[in-house]
Each structure stands twice: as structure tokens, then as C-alpha cells.
Design a protein around this nucleic acid. Structure first.
Lengths: 117, 117
DNA sequence: GATAATGTACGTTCTTCGTCGTACATCGTA
DNA sequence: TACGATGTACGACGAAGAACGTACATTATC
């Protein structure tokens, strides 16, 4: 069996509007806030009880494909981390400005379908 | 006749994910890049020939309702400007980080329907 | 190999977005 | 008041997003 593989864009391919789009969703903003400490987090622990697994997979894919996060398989789980260096190199100060705020507004809100994007 | 009126959110109501969403589109990013100098720009001059008027109205509405720009009617035209102080106050460094980059990636591209959001 | 744990793929449904044309409204001026 | 200039409202269309359940895949362990 081939090990699980995940597409990650090269650092040079990151585009501003894609990154901003990835961060324009409250759930994904909350994920990124969790990753703020720079360590790897098991995907199963992110917003664990408020979001179904398949939904979380969806959001993590968008973050990953925008180049905001890195996903690394480890045993049965996936470890997620911020691609801080890459994003910082291309868009200095962007993550700082966004994460300084945390995710005070619009908490991910449990099971309510987010009608406002 | 009542003068034209435009809804602008209060500075305190700005939310991060709405601002990021407003800036997650190449066309709107290009508009903001034009406004970088801090002066008022007639809406008709923004990306003048590359975007139809009704489309520009749409984008300006999203920027305005996210609190990124201010729209002020002046005679027959509308003058658009950045709400720099308000955004900076709430999300310090955000606009700087975004506008430092300009809009190098993904130019607004004339008439091509942007399939990739 | 069988099983449980974890995560992905896929399909569905509903909503929103981006684009634009056309019709209407507003404003200044002749 | 009529006209031209400018901008909005509205509707249409195709595309994408967000949410989720279910089925499948991968991994470690028994």
C-alpha cells in the first residue's frame, strides 16, 4: 500500500487571495488559532467535538492546498502544523496580524450551519 | 429625492473573517491596491476598462460592507477610500501586510471569467 | 488475518459567489 | 424638463463552497 500522500503547494506558488480565502472562514480561523503555538496537532483533536470528521477533512484540505498548513501522516493519525516560515517569507506580517487577533469574533459554533460566509 | 445612502458597518463591528473574505478575490485585491495611496478614487476609474460597471458595483459593495472601504457620493460619482484607521485599529498590521505585497499574483484579468476562486 | 481507530473519498443538498446584461435611479447641465 | 453621465437593482446563469452521512482506505494491534 502506498503511504498516504497530501498535495502541498510550493512556497513560491502561494497566492495572497487563496491564503486569504482559506482564512476567511470562522472554522478555519479557529483551526489556525489552535496551531498558533507552532507545534503539530493531531487533526482529530482540532475542534474535536464541534465539527464532524468529514467536515474537518474538508477544511483542512483547503488550508493545506492554500499553503497555510502542512499535513503529515503519522501512524493512523495526521499531524497538522502551520507553514509559518513559508507564509511569512512570502507575505511578511500577514499571519502575525491575523493570529494576533486570535479568533475572538465568530466562534466556530457547534452544529449550526454557517449561513454567512 | 433622498441622497444616495450606503451602509457602512461600525468600526467595532468589523470581523476578521469578513474582511479576509472581502480581500480573497483578485479583483477586490486590485481595487484595494489602487486605494493604497490613501486618497479617494472615483469608482469609475477603478479598474476602469477591465470590469463592467455592474460587476464593479458588486465588488465595491462587498468591500464596503466588510468595512474595508468607504463610499461617498459626490455629484454623479462615488468616491471610494480605504477605512485604514478603522481596520488598523481593530486588526493592526493586517492591511500593511496585505498591501505590502501589492497584487502581484493573479492580476484582475480583463474579461476572463475567473473560474478559480 | 480480523478488528478497532482514524481519516479520506464521494455523493447530496443547499447556499453563496462571480459575472454580466438590462432596466431603473440619481445627479449635473443644457 | 430633457439629456447624458454615472452608478445601482435585479435577475440569470454557471461554478464553487459548506455541511454532512456513508462507504472505503490506511494503520496499529490483537
Amino acid at each position: 500500500m502506498s503511504p498516504r500522500k497530501f498535495f502541498h503547494p510550493d512556497a513560491a506558488e502561494l497566492t495572497l487571495h487563496r491564503i486569504l480565502f482559506a482564512l476567511s472562514d470562522p472554522t478555519r480561523l479557529a483551526v489556525v488559532a489552535d496551531l498558533k503555538d507552532g507545534t503539530e496537532h493531531a487533526s482529530g483533536n482540532l475542534l474535536a467535538d464541534s465539527v464532524p470528521r468529514s467536515t474537518m477533512t474538508h477544511h483542512l484540505k483547503i488550508l493545506r492546498e492554500a499553503g497555510v498548513t502542512r499535513t503529515r501522516p503519522e501512524g493512523m493519525r495526521c499531524l497538522i502544523s502551520l507553514r509559518r516560515e513559508d507564509v511569512d517569507a512570502r507575505f511578511p506580517g500577514l499571519l502575525d496580524a491575523i493570529m494576533r487577533h486570535g479568533n475572538a469574533d465568530e466562534p466556530p459554533m457547534a452544529t449550526t450551519r454557517t449561513t454567512m460566509r
